[in-house]
Design a protein around this nucleic acid. Structure first.
Lengths: 347, 347
DNA sequence: GGGACCGAGGGTACCGCTACCATAAGAGGT
DNA sequence: ACCTCTTATGGTAGCGGTACCCTCGGTCCC
């Protein structure tokens, strides 16, 4: 043991050697804790020291290591958001609402995409939780048992959004898709339509879309009616798919007088296709959509649809998480933000 | 001081006391290192011990703490993606391309949204870097000096995407927006249009949109022409904005025979508005868009636009980052994936 | 048969920061 | 003048893994 390890530093395993708080502290002639404080709560450090620290930080290009900070404090300032899709305009709106609030509170949003798979959702939840997030926002109320268990036992604020359920894991902000579907059904019935077809994507399993259909079916059942036809597609929603669907409906069930599409993308595609084929909307065939996306009101005939409070859902969910993190109790854990029937000319 | 702090463990600051590797190791009767190996490289652990560890993990519900792992190894398995917007369909496509590849390689994608602000971009880059990411993908080639410096000195693979530049920070995958604009200009000129108006959003500063306009202007200049009118909007692109823009153009410059919109959202809104107002497209007014979004081909007249390789950009960028992380050299650091002129009926 | 070699497994010193103290220096009250 | 009460600052022990060694038993080969 003459020369092995005697240098005392050759065995260090460092690779990148970023600037650390200690180096800043040395240069500024303060303790590391003061550097730490200067970053997290500048007012608690005298302006003299703060200036010296600022100088050192700038000179050395110090960037605090969040991993170390998170490990030590078990607070990371992150809030993962788990959603099933990005391609649909629905989720970007929600995410926008969330990120505005989180950003204002210095929280970092992490986005995860499940592609409508509960297995991927579970994997994402596990991954995110292993990062010790401060809170978590997740779309939907349908999860695997393990996902529920993980979230419930995580001890952090959990907000399930978009849909509402009777037994949320923790907080729940959204609206009832069943009620929304029912409202559309009631409206269509009120307009005199009786032979109604339903079209939905499954993507592969969009529970909320199915719930909207269920609500519409309920409305029909209340009048002893049932859907004249039902089309469920495995593919992603798109204008093209809506166009195909409406063609199929008309071909297979010419008696149908109205079609409810589970989302606006399908419905708009259908409206366009009808205009191409000379099918009068709504005289020959009424068309209704869901979500109230911008373009629904830009086509002619304007789409009759259900406007959903997407941005508001995101905003409130994020605010509830923030409240919780601030240690304040949140009053209504379960919030039904409702929806609005937008009557256009298509139905 | 009879009972305060005398127990010797009450002073520990633990709060959540998650299950740790040590507990798993104890239960399985192995060392912590073996637990660690069992997670990262299962083959290197004998099947006997592995089984015991698996049992303990399941029984205790152990989830490794990524913060600790990342701090110790300085590898976190994360790749932040910084984009300017989500509302536009353009970015979800790119993100999809990226996330598919990253997911396949067990890398976690983190999404950041700059809202087209270079300041927010800088803040995001700093935040993400403080999480010790393995690589980073960032939209665009225009950054603040500090952003460039941070990324360049980070020592991790950096992929700038969508646009191409002469002096990328590291890797660069995209296409030339100038060339794309020029291609559209050449096409429009070839079709006989001479009095061309340009419309773009700034959002507030979408450099790529401006470059497309610049390219178009170049094409005009080659024939000693210049744009008949230019409209730049601060608002986000939308159908409505496109509709407003086309109305304004027609009102203010009735002599305009073609309008180039910097993106399809605007262009489609314009086409719709024209059909509402009985303006014949393209006979009275030709309309061209940019991006090749799905709905561009679903309206009538079909939009003439430039199709951009969005998903492919995302895919290749992610793959280049993955290659680098695997220690392999990437052959072409700078890749121009080109674009495609899609001739519809609108111009 | 003995030593080099190999691969599985374990000990332990870190990674860089922050919670929890302890300490020191004023401030203020009597 | 003395003592308590703040307020500003620093020391230090973790947070929970992993890199870097090291040991140990078995193989292989001369």
């Amino acid at each position: 043991m003459s020369d092995i390890g005697t240098t005392g530093q050759s065995r260090k395993r460092r690779r990148k050697s970023r600037v650390t708080a200690r180096e800043v502290a040395l240069r500024a002639g303060v303790g590391t804790m003061t550097v730490s404080r200067a970053f997290r709560n500048p007012e608690s450090v005298s302006s003299d020291l703060r200036a010296r620290i600022d100088e050192a930080v700038a000179a050395l290009g110090y960037v605090p290591n969040r991993l170390a900070g998170g490990l030590a404090s078990s607070r990371t300032g992150t809030v993962p958001v788990i959603i099933p899709s990005l391609s649909n305009n629905v989720f970007p709106d929600i995410v926008d609402g969330i990120s505005g609030v989180l950003q204002a509170h210095n929280l970092q949003m992490l986005l995860g995409n499940t592609r409508y798979s509960l297995e991927e959702e579970e994997a994402l939840a596990a991954t995110f939780l292993s990062w010790s997030p401060d809170g978590i926002i997740i779309a939907g109320t349908d999860h695997t048992e393990r996902t529920r268990a993980m979230l419930a036992s995580s001890g952090i604020p959990v907000a399930e959004i978009i849909d509402i359920a009777d037994d949320p894991i923790d907080m729940n902000i959204g609206f009832s898709h069943v009620e929304a579907g029912k409202a559309m059904g009631t409206y269509l019935l009120g307009r005199g339509y009786r032979r109604i077809a339903l079209v939905a994507p499954l993507c592969p399993r969009d529970q909320r879309a199915l719930r909207r259909l269920a609500g519409l079916r309920e409305a029909l059942a209340a009048r002893d009616l049932e859907p004249t036809a039902e089309l469920l597609y495995e593919d992603r929603s798109s204008w093209r798919l809506g166009a195909e669907a409406v063609v199929r409906v008309v071909a297979e069930r010419p008696d149908v007088d109205a079609v409810f599409f589970a989302n606006d993308d399908l419905a708009v595609g259908a409206v366009q296709e009808c205009s191409r084929r000379g099918i009068a909307v709504p005289e020959q065939l009424a068309i209704a959509g869901f979500n109230g996306l911008e373009f629904a009101s830009e086509i002619r005939p304007r789409l009759t649809t259900i406007v959903t409070p997407r941005r508001e859902i995101g905003r409130q969910a994020a605010e509830m998480v923030v409240e919780r993190l601030a240690g304040r109790a949140v009053d209504a854990l379960r919030r039904d933000l409702g929806f609005r029937l937008l009557v256009g000319e298509s139905a």
